[in-house]
Design a protein around this nucleic acid. Structure first.
Length: 809
RNA sequence: GCCGCCGUGGCGAAACUGGCAGACGCGCGGGAUUUAGGAUCCCGUGGUAGCGAUACCGUGUCGGUUCAAACCCGACCGGCGGCACCA
């Protein structure tokens, strides 16, 4: 078979017949939206990761299509972003030019892959038609109060010269370039994702997602229940602390503010001023990595000020310490050294009192004791235990008007400003008189100018383009400046799956009906690395847009599947520096795209991935040859045999394969699905090799089913075989085979016969018999007789069609 | 430290969720075909002992529940991932 020619032939035909267009012919069928995470056009070529994501997922989509769904599977490009810009800085090629060139190549390669993408719905996020609506999204969020601007300590990557979202900082380093992140105070735009913390958390329960991913999001959102308590300083200033242990409130011997706390300087006494200033300076100079290390020795300084514990009435000193984070809770904590390890270490170092207020039930209390226990030394609360104590004390605090029960989240608002060029400009104008003014919707898009000096120097490249920056205030008409920052590219990718539903709309990002009809995405396939970024942001967008009335569902992705990672042959992640990068191209050239895809599906457990090896692809190539040979043979078949044992066996294999392959495909268990197809092929060879006359009709039907079952996994190859067998039209217009239950009912089944749970022999026993009948037949077997002679059957277990176990004594 | 996942032949992996461990494939051994090699087609292939039927052992380790455990429970060992001075 001339693979190249066949691929070309069918790809041309699919395109001509618009076979991959969603809904072009099947409007009465039920919709099914299969989506793969769109590609980032950083390199010019598809790598194995793309193939591994898109190939098998496309097979799934084709499978659903053959099952009778109206399948929508679009593709596009997440085209804004840093790599293109960094490449430009290195080579001088403008990001727009390199991106467009890369997209053109990747489009060609994706088409050559033979996936049934509906290219009529293609999206590129860097086009004006798209980013206009990304900017529009920003404006809606702004209107709704979900976008705000504030000065805050933010994560700054000195190498990328931009701020980063919390999600983009990994171990205190930039997730992209590994440079340690520094803190900077900057005025930036944020999306208020924290407004949705609770729903983002609770919504996870109903999703058909990998548990692991849901857990990661749960961890990231980090809900914790506790209590806020208001402390009043002698100066009259008040501040609140957050604690998960209100049951320990009588054990507070000091409180700690983070060095950035607004009251830090205000309450400091003159005697302590110098020490406090020094400490604040020290804290601000230490890096995120240092500061976040739990093994670092606790440091702090006394402010000289005191405040009153509202529950016990005791006066306690106020310290500053950088183990208290300004960004979590209230930026202040009550310290209970007896029942918290950090407080214990700090109190020991600075000679602060340690007061035990919790006792271990039935045992010695060793300090610091951080488990639940019995409250002591706490007046009317003495004797309460754990949760009960917490809720009683919280209620009391609420009663006296000093705080009360509170839920806190680890999740922070999403910082969306970037000091980079290659992104969607933030549609805001800064006017001296009117402040930050959103660009009127009719003036969108705010075009990204082409001629920009984007070599980074810590300022937004756009700030240096006077033509871009200089504008008039939409409110007062006076001279004004544009916002020089661009939107985080994750903003672009937070709504692209919605745009696919209505990709050419010029009046709106999408029509409500179009989105409600097509969404949510039925199956979303992509890498697990997006668990706490893209997948969280997209859920946030969906919920926010729902609350603004633009759509009617709560979650964008009903089912989520992560493909694994294909490693280099040496077991390491593929990278140029390891020198272990395997390019798909040479294999595709040699074996064809179908063989390459089949190997990816067969050689790995889809969600696991694993190291690449070439032996497998030869095996696949052999399998395809075997299929082709049997098809050619089937065409010549003329036998008229009836239905004997061999025919029954073949027909059983055929229907059993149908049942199991369908089940495996649905579960993304592609390796076993293909193993089943190999088994059916082996069964056909066996039948063909047997003596005697053959049943041509059965043989041909079985071969046809094999082709249909194989079609989603090897589309071009199967089209060709289907045609060879005299099929009309496309194999993808055929209905996926459905098993015949009658063929799966056998008169006899092979049982493992056990005596006292040990297998003694195998036996064919009637499959429709009662348990008693099975037992009596089994006990008549000579191998069994031998072992039960003179003994009594005290118990038996029959597992229909599998096992009969006789317990004798 | 907290949460989650994983550990099965020489190798990639299966095992219908408690029911014959190792499907399918690679590799290896044998045979057929071939002048030869390759390709192809059969057969075999967890370990140990035995010519053999067969016997014993075997899913990281130890224990438990059960007629029956890779699967459930407990303790540990090893690996991976997430969160982590989060109060």
């Amino acid at each position: 078979m001339d693979i190249k020619a066949i691929e070309k032939k069918w790809q041309t035909r699919w395109e001509k017949e618009k076979l991959n267009r969603f809904g072009s012919k099947d409007t009465d069928k039920k919709k099914f939206y299969v989506l793969e995470m769109f590609s980032y056009p950083s390199g010019a070529k598809l790598h194995i990761g793309h193939w591994y994501n898109y190939g098998p997922a496309d097979s799934y989509a084709r499978f659903k299509r053959m099952q009778g769904y109206n399948v929508f599977q679009p593709m596009g490009f997440d085209a804004f972003g840093l790599p293109a810009e960094n490449y430009a800085i290195k080579t001088g090629v403008h990001p727009k030019d390199s991106t467009e060139a890369n997209i053109a190549t990747m489009e060609q390669q994706l088409k050559a892959m033979g996936a049934m993408f509906d290219w009529s719905a293609e999206i590129k996020t860097c086009t004006e038609e798209y980013y206009k609506w990304t900017q529009w999204m920003f404006l809606q969020f702004y209107k709704k109060g979900l976008a705000y601007r504030k000065e805050a300590p933010v994560n700054w990557c000195p190498s990328c010269n931009t701020v980063l979202a919390n999600e983009q900082v990994v171990d205190g380093k930039c997730e992209r370039c590994d440079t340690p992140v520094v803190r900077k105070n900057l005025t930036q735009w944020f999306f208020k994702i924290t407004d949705y913390a609770e729903e983002l958390l609770s919504g996870l329960d109903g999703l058909d997602w990998p548990e692991k991913t849901k857990n990661m999001q749960r961890n990231w959102i980090g809900r914790s229940t506790g209590c806020e308590i208001e402390f009043e300083c002698d100066s009259g200033d008040v501040f609140r602390v957050f604690t998960t242990r209100p049951d320990t409130v009588f054990g507070v011997t000091y409180v700690v503010l983070s060095p950035e706390h607004p009251l830090a300087r205000k309450i400091t006494t003159p005697e302590q001023r110098e020490a406090v200033e020094q400490y604040i300076d020290f804290a601000s100079r230490s890096s995120e990595i240092e500061r976040l290390s739990s093994t670092r020795e606790k440091t702090g300084v006394f402010t000289g000020a005191y405040c009153t514990n509202p529950v016990s009435g005791k006066k306690v000193p106020i310290y500053l310490a950088d183990y208290v984070l300004y960004s979590y809770g209230t930026g202040a904590v009550m310290a209970v050294p007896a029942h918290d390890e950090r407080d214990y270490a700090f109190a020991t170092k600075y000679g602060l009192p340690i007061v035990k207020v919790i006792e271990k039930r039935g045992g010695e209390t060793v300090l610091p004791y951080t488990e639940d226990g019995i409250v002591v030394g706490s007046l009317q609360f003495d004797g309460l235990y754990g949760e009960e104590a917490r809720s009683e004390i919280s209620a009391y605090i609420r009663k006296i008007g000093k705080g009360g029960k509170k839920v806190n989240y680890r999740l922070r608002d999403w910082l969306i400003s970037r000091q980079r060029y290659w992104g969607a400009p933030i549609p805001v104008i800064h006017c001296e008189k009117c402040g930050a003014v959103p660009v009127p919707e009719k003036n969108l898009p705010v075009r990204l100018p082409y001629d920009v000096e984007f070599r980074p120097d810590g300022k937004s490249p756009l700030a240096k383009n006077e033509k871009f920056m200089s504008t008039v205030c939409p409110k007062c008409g006076g001279p004004a400046r544009r916002d020089p920052d661009t939107l985080d590219t994750f903003v672009c990718s937070s709504w692209y799956y919605l745009r696919y539903a209505d990709p050419h709309n010029e009046k709106a990002p999408f029509e409500k009906e179009a989105v409600d009809r097509l969404l949510p995405v039925d199956v979303y396939v992509g890498g697990a690395e997006h668990s706490c970024m893209h997948l969280l942001y997209a859920r946030f967008f969906t919920k926010a847009l729902r609350d603004m009335g633009y759509l009617d569902f709560d979650e964008p992705f009903k089912r989520l599947v992560h493909q694994g990672v294909i490693l280099g042959p040496d077991g390491n992640r593929m990278s140029k520096s390891h020198g272990n990068v395997v390019s798909p191209d040479e294999y595709v050239n040699e074996y064809g795209s179908d063989a390459f895809r089949l190997y990816l599906m067969f050689g790995f457990s889809y969600t696991e991935g694993g190291p690449w090896n070439d032996d497998g692809i030869k095996a696949i190539s052999r399998f395809m040859d075997r299929v082709e040979k049997i098809v050619l043979k089937a065409r010549e078949y003329t036998g008229k045999a009836g239905y004997g044992a061999e025919e029954t066996a073949l027909n059983y294999a055929r229907n059993d394969t149908i049942r199991r392959v369908a089940r495996d495909m649905e579960a993304f268990s592609f390796n076993t699905a293909i193993a089943r197809l190999m088994e059916l092929t082996n069964a056909l060879y066996k039948y063909d090799g047997a003596n005697g006359e053959k049943n041509a009709a059965l043989f041909k039907d079985t071969v046809k089913d094999l082709i249909l079952l194989l079609a989603p996994c090897a589309p071009h190859f199967s089209e060709e075989l289907f045609e060879i067998m005299g099929g009309k039209g496309s194999v993808f217009e055929q209905r996926y085979p459905v098993e015949d239950p009658a063929a799966l009912v056998l008169a006899e089944k092979e049982y493992a016969v056990q005596v006292n749970s040990k297998i003694v022999c195998k036996a064919m026993l009637p499959s429709d018999a009662q348990d008693e009948e099975i037992v009596s037949q089994a006990s008549a077997l000579p191998e069994v007789q031998e072992r039960i002679a003179g003994k009594k059957i005290v118990k038996y277990i029959v597992v229909k069609g599998r096992i009969v176990n006789l317990i004798v004594a």
